[in-house]
């Protein structure tokens, strides 16, 4: 086992444990904090995949903005932070079945995919991946349409937020 694999396994384990705690912990703020740990673990995984830009974006957007948004939302909506009710409701077996089926399906689909065993081609050295990404985002023969649509999507999110928050004065 190479050190890189060891780091991967530790990070993956941490991410999974944290994700599990997000669901099981009874304190909502703790759940949000465990979510931060999960997201940080994912950022480390991005680094291991040689995608530093995505790793940094993961921290900036998910930890810096979305986790903060979650914590604000929790503080707004609930006065009582500690949930005393049952954690499972009557439909738990159906949810478990669906999750199991989804997991099984994904497992079955990816089982035969050779991407797991094949060694990825090394990245061409000396190439500025960020610059290449930037070019790809705005080049007409690449991803300019998704890029602009992303902008419209963000606009829609903003308008939606305005609508939710809007009060007749």
């Amino acid at each position: 086992m190479t050190p890189l694999q060891l780091v991967f396994l530790l990070t993956a384990a941490l991410t999974l444990v944290a994700a599990f705690r997000v669901v099981t912990t009874r304190n909502l703020v703790h759940a949000a904090l465990w979510l931060v740990v999960t997201l940080f673990g994912v950022a480390v995984l991005f680094v291991l995949l040689n995608a530093p830009f995505l790793a940094v974006v993961q921290v900036v957007v998910y930890i810096g903005a979305i986790a903060v948004l979650f914590i604000f939302a929790i503080m707004l909506t609930r006065r009582e932070m500690r949930d005393q009710g049952a954690q499972l409701n009557k439909g738990w077996w159906a949810a478990a079945l669906v999750s199991l089926l989804t997991f099984g399906g994904l497992f079955w689909l990816t089982r035969s995919w050779d991407g797991f065993t094949r060694t990825a081609a090394p990245l061409p050295t000396g190439q500025d991946t960020l610059s290449a990404l930037g070019k790809a985002l705005v080049s007409p023969d690449a991803f300019v349409l998704p890029f602009e649509i992303a902008s419209v999507l963000l606009l829609a999110a903003l308008v939606g937020a305005v609508y939710v928050a809007y009060r007749e004065k």
Binding site: L33, P52, V60, I63, G64, A65, L130
Partner: peptide, 25 residues
């Protein structure tokens, strides 16, 4: 010398924000 240096600055700032939330809460 990271090739994402400028954004790294913001990412570290995000951790600082988190520290303040933790302390306050």
């Amino acid at each position: 010398d990271l090739n994402v240096g400028a954004l790294y600055l913001i990412a570290a700032g995000a951790l600082g924000t988190l520290a303040i939330i933790l302390a306050g809460w």
